[in-house]
């Protein structure tokens, strides 16, 4: 049976789409057939992160309007043939599609793909409701910031109310040095507050911006960056493997620790 997972966060700008792109690509790399759906009608971005923006001929709206077949709208990724993108229309509003239509699209995709990732728009309005309608699982993406965690909590509540029980957490943009210095919530803090199972932690990494610029998900790098490795681990855990959390605590303020060790053996 296909796994239908919605990627959501409540707050915008926490890295939902980046996570979707990397997870989709990583799952495809591991041999799964993956369809990623951009549910952000009117403000689509997933195509950019995957570097597929100039290959879009048809969108989900065209499929629903009967202007083309579903397979025509699916954009295959040449780098990774197991991955297909179902793009959102850029010229429509989120109200132009209904939850039932989303369910119909996803149901059709489940016949061919065994992972379907739905990239939800920010917010909890129509676009969000469309995105979660077909989902059986959810991945909450949050950053260790008060506003993101609060919104994530609200979304978890809404998902539970919509009968999506398997809800897991990705903590994005963690800065271990700041946690160490007591200026950022730790993984444990965030997880303790949200109390849902943790799928992984992605460290803040400049490479994320570089990969976005190029339209190549981090996971495609030959030598994986720290964030890239974190995404690879998340992908393994998503498929049921037990992978310990990476040790992100980079050697912090080396001088001070060394100084302390000197005095306090």
């Amino acid at each position: 049976m296909s796994r239908i997972i919605v990627m959501t966060s409540g707050k915008g700008g926490v890295g939902k789409t980046t996570c979707t792109a990397n997870l989709g690509m990583a799952l495809a790399k591991s041999g799964q057939r993956v369809a990623v759906i951009d549910a952000d009608f009117g403000l689509r971005n997933l195509d950019l992160l995957l570097g597929l923006e100039n290959r879009i001929v048809y969108t989900a709206i065209d499929v629903l309007a009967g202007e083309c077949r579903l397979d025509q709208a699916l954009v295959k990724d040449k780098r990774q043939p197991n991955l297909a993108l179902l793009p959102a229309a850029q010229n429509r509003s989120k109200e132009s599609i209904k939850p039932e239509q989303m369910q119909r699209l996803v149901k059709a995709l489940t016949k061919v793909y065994n992972f379907i990732l739905i990239d939800s728009p920010a917010g909890i309005e129509m676009g969000f409701r469309n995105a979660i309608a077909p989902a059986r699982e959810a991945i909450i993406v949050t950053t260790p910031e008060i506003s993101a965690v609060r919104d994530a909590d609200r979304v978890i509540g809404l998902l539970e109310a919509n009968d999506i029980k398997a809800v897991r957490l990705i903590i994005n943009r963690l800065r271990p040095a700041m946690v160490e210095a007591g200026q950022m919530m730790s993984v444990k803090d965030v997880q303790g507050i949200l109390s849902i199972p943790l799928l992984g932690v992605i460290p803040d990494d400049e490479q994320v911006i570089v990969s976005t610029n190029k339209g190549e998900p981090l996971i495609l790098e030959e030598k994986l960056s720290l964030a890239g490795m974190a995404f690879a681990n998340v992908t393994l855990r998503l498929q049921g493997e037990k992978v310990p959390l990476m040790d992100l605590s980079a050697p912090p303020e080396g001088f001070l620790t060394r100084l302390k060790r000197l005095f306090d053996p």
């Binding site: 499929v63 629903l64 309007a65 009967g66 077949r69 579903l70 397979d71 119909r104 699209l105 149901k107 059709a108 995709l109 016949k111 061919v112």
Partner: peptide, 13 residues
Amino acid sequence: ATEDFILEIESNL
């Protein structure tokens, strides 16, 4: 499989 899923969409439309 492809044809399967196409048919469904179209019949609905």
